[in-house]
Nucleic acid binder design. Structure first.
Lengths: 175, 175
DNA sequence: GGTAAGATACCGACCAGCCGGTTGGTTTGG
DNA sequence: CCAAACCAACCGGCTGGTCGGTATCTTACC
């Protein structure tokens, strides 16, 4: 049917952003990265915006799936969300890059991310006796995520794992 | 001497990013915004990169100045940093926009931001008996900042001020 | 099984507009 | 009179997107 599917194109786009920065995320570059002509690429994604949208959706889906895996393994809402965020940070492809590219291109593309965050917030608010503290733990993890995107927080840094463990401990105390 | 100074140009650039998004931060747009021709703009900032750099530096300087004001008024390191971050979030110009524009254009421009964050981290690490918890409070504030940039966290939201107060309380318990 | 017809995947040349930066000149302040 | 501030036209390269065509696959009918 198709030698290259949309998922492969999205991966190629992430690769381009990682290698060359968000500003160089160009249709030609993506096409080259996945061995396609620009025409071929446009056949799959009719506009650049639709490609960016797909990048964001793929990344969000990965994060949600990750959280659900932890939840299925017995973690509570907060712990599984925290672990999902950490996992997201460790393989630094995907969402961070897509986020940057999208926010640069058109902030309106962030709508799905917004929805996702709000949904998560709702889940947590209704599950803990001290919802504000629970929110703060999530926010701290997202702060680490920001540090990662900006290149300030390295996942090999011993501080990173200490903060990570500490956050999980604090979340365990909350139940 | 000059009818338009560099600070005014930086403000105009922030305005452009706010109104049209980082991708539309173009020399022509900035020139138009501050009533200058492109040639005139280039006379002040010889390249776009140097303008971006100035934007970042101005924003960082604002934040540092804000933190120092709080410190001078008697707040300890953590509280003054937290308050500075909150202040940064409330008038949503400046750093968030500059950050986005810079990271999109060339991640290397983030170096000063990186230095600033690392310096802040050092200050805090050496000032509290439980440095990790102190770091987590800062990270939570930065997480809120990220939420603001993505348009998820509104500063009028009652949740916002509750989280803010809670963070300050937690920091007070730490001394 | 073969094949005609239609759809889907893909190519690569091309275009129009944008954008960073140059240049050569004019105005303005001291 | 000089230097700094500023202007406006211009340029070359890039980029998103178009277009007309080819190759490959599916379907259906004989």
């Amino acid at each position: 049917m198709s030698r290259v599917d949309k998922a492969a194109i999205v991966r190629a786009a992430e690769e381009v952003v990682r290698e060359k920065g968000a500003r160089k995320l160009t249709l030609d570059a993506v096409a080259a990265q996945c061995g396609l002509s620009k025409g071929g690429l446009i056949h799959h994604f009719r506009t650049k915006q639709s490609l960016l949208k797909a990048m964001l959706e793929a990344a969000i889906a990965r994060e949600d799936a990750s959280a659900e895996t932890f939840a299925a393994a017995g973690d509570d809402v907060l712990a599984s969300r925290l672990k999902a965020i950490f996992e997201l940070m460790e393989d630094d492809e995907g969402l961070p890059r897509a986020l940057i590219a999208a926010v640069a291109e058109d902030p309106a593309l962030l709508e799905p991310v917004k929805c996702n965050v709000i949904e998560m917030r709702g889940e947590i608010d209704s599950s803990y006796g001290d919802p504000e503290l629970a929110q703060l733990l999530i926010l701290a993890a997202q702060g680490m995520f920001l540090g990662r995107v900006l290149g300030v927080m390295e996942s090999e840094d011993p501080m990173f794992s200490r903060l990570r463990e500490r956050l999980l401990m604090l979340s365990a105390e909350l139940t």
